[in-house]
Amino acid sequence: MSLTQAVFILLGGMAVLGALGMVTLRNLFHSALAMILALFSIAGIYVLLEAEFLAVVQVLVYVGAIAMLILFGIMLTRDIVGRASAVRNRQWPLALAVSAGLLAVLAVALVRAAWPLATYAPAQGGVADLGLALMGPYALPFEVASVLLLVAMVGALIIAREARE
């Protein structure tokens, strides 16, 4: 086992642990912290794959901003003093069915996949190539994603406005 493999197993284990903690911990704040652990381990896996830019953006956007806003949201909407919360609610059979279905689909796909190795070396340009790709061949999906975010933002504003009046 090489050093890279050892690091990968460590990071992967941390990510899985974090994800498990997120769904099983009874305390919402602790689950959010577990989610951050998972996100952070994934950033580590990006570094291992030599995708430095993705790793940095993962930490900056997910750990630094989105996770913070989720925690913020939890604290503003939930009762801060009542700390423990139920892990299950009335929809658990439905959720179980959906998760089991997704797991089945993923398992079939994973077993059937041939896992071909790339025959060419990964691109070396990094950020420059990524930028050119986003502005060139992938300009449309990039713009559509931006519009989606804009719509979500305007929607959030409208909901907040109605609640106030």
């Binding site: 430095e52 940095v56 900056l60 630094g64 990094g126």
Partner: peptide, 11 residues
């Protein structure tokens, strides 16, 4: 590293 300008605010 090649993305140091982003690395510092990220960490």
């Amino acid at each position: 590293i090649s993305v140091a300008v982003l690395f510092v605010p990220a960490v």
